[in-house]
Design a protein around this nucleic acid. Structure first.
Lengths: 129, 129
DNA sequence: ATTAGTAATGATAATAGTTATCAAAATCAG
DNA sequence: CTGATTTTGATAACTATTATCATTACTAAT
């Protein structure tokens, strides 16, 4: 049923996500892929980002302000989002297993996934103020 | 500057949020407050929910599917969102402080807030399937 | 290589959720 | 009460995303 057919647009979208750690929004992906495919439609970008997310090839991240971002780094890790510049950064995975273990201790439903997002000021913005 | 004037609508919205642990959406709040104020506008509900959130009286929670929910319980705690019925539940606050301490070790920006959201199947939905 | 079947695309319309605008009504200090 | 200011309800506008659909691209079988 999941009859997937190759497309150059999808490959370009995936390649761009793999090449960056900036956690771009759909619109940012659109801007970049447009350099290679000037006629690509924004709908195609959304369609493929969601498809890649469903396949598990990319992560869909929702930040504290509700903006949706994409990340090709799918290993378990937390994110930090700067409230000033809006940048989303990966956090070292150092204690993720421990964090997950602690946080799930007191709940008796079936936990399948988690999202841990910290908000604050990144180093750059901290210096500016 | 924060020249706040009392309004009965705002009080009703706050009262409803305090009375429930269901983490309602703006639209659900609207439905309920309409019983007391049949002419209240959806815009008024949004305006006051955001105002209350800015004041720190309520929490604005963004779930894994991007839907926005409100919670009058402002003590630090995690949330669980059922992917089947969409219900959002509070999780015991047991290890929050410890989690936060571990996470700040992994990152050198200034962490001010966090959001920890688990997704899966709640007990009810687990039994149904 | 050609063809036939199906999936993906680009263009665009439609939708959902939220915010902005503004005249009228409500609040409140004096 | 009165006047100044905030809030409201109604509605328009906006943003992000999804749906629609004829055309194009991909691919496996001839």
């Amino acid at each position: 049923m999941a009859n997937l057919k190759y497309s150059r647009q999808r490959e370009a979208i995936k390649d761009y996500l793999v090449s960056t750690t900036a956690h771009p929004t759909a619109d940012t992906v659109y801007m970049h892929v447009r350099k290679e495919f000037p006629n690509i439609s924004l709908g195609t970008v959304y369609r493929n980002l969601n498809l890649l997310a469903d396949l598990g090839d990319v992560n869909k991240i929702i930040t504290a302000d509700g903006s949706v971002r994409f990340d090709a780094y799918t290993e378990p890790h937390c994110h930090f989002c700067c409230r000033r510049c809006g940048k989303v950064m990966d956090m070292a995975p150092g204690h993720i297993a421990e964090i997950r273990r602690l946080a799930s201790k007191d709940f008796d439903g079936k936990i399948e996934a988690y999202s841990i997002l910290f908000t604050g000021l990144c180093n750059e913005c901290r210096e500016d103020s």
